[in-house]
Amino acid sequence: MNTISKTLALMLLVLAMPAAAAASDDPLDSSQWRYMLRQYFPDAKVVFDDRVRVVAPDYAEDSLATPVQVRAEGLEDVERVLVLADHSPINPVLDYYPVRAAPAIGFHFKVQQATPIRAAMRTADGTWHVGGVWVDAEGGGCTAPSVGSASPLWESRLGEVEGRLWARGDRSQRLKFRVVHPMDTGLAAGIPAFFIRSVTVSDADGRTLARLEPDEPVAENPVFALDLKHAGAVTVEGRDNNGNVFSARIPAPAS
């Protein structure tokens, strides 16, 4: 084999390997990605993967509440979903453990400036699969006070949960719930960080179906949409960073 064909063979070999997430090959071409890799995935195997779908508008109409839907298409054994924003004073947006649920979650988040919004899904073999999109924005969402912080009304309703289940095929349900909470980031002058730290969804026997750990950038009075691999009523329990707890039983869908 001459040198040229050796080189070609080596190049083909390189092309055939799964895309390792070096800073240079970030499909979103973000200047922050090298730092994100070091900070959030030290020593881990990270690949960009089109099966990890992040759906969000290309412009944040509401910097305080920009919708995002994360889901996997044909990626199995996802144990953890980490949602991150590169250009944000607080990069982690939400950490989701779909124990008996699909690796899919819908919610709203605060946008401080134009940023990639990414989902990193860790599969059972320890590999992180990353997908994402850019969201442009007028911005300022993370450093603005919550609407709730300006009004005493929320205090009497703090931790109230409104939730509903929808049957989605055999032993599968969409759960949507809203929690009354200001979700203050701590980055608005004079208003300390005050946000929901953890939420657990369990079945009637107390088995965990899904667990999520929101970070400060999740929008005020958050609404979460989850896809549970479970039929029947569930319990939603959570706590915030000040130790306030909330819980609610969501009845099985009518029909």
Binding site: P57, E61, D62, A65, T66, P67, E160, V161, E162, G163, R164, K176, F177, R178, V223, V236, A248, R249, I250, P251
Partner: peptide
């Protein structure tokens, strides 16, 4: 249309959830 989702859907979405779940 997508901007209108941001403007109008939150209130409509909330009205499709029960008032308060116990």
């Amino acid at each position: 249309y997508r901007r209108s989702v941001s403007h109008l859907y939150p209130a409509i979405e909330q009205s499709a959830l029960p008032e308060r779940t116990e």
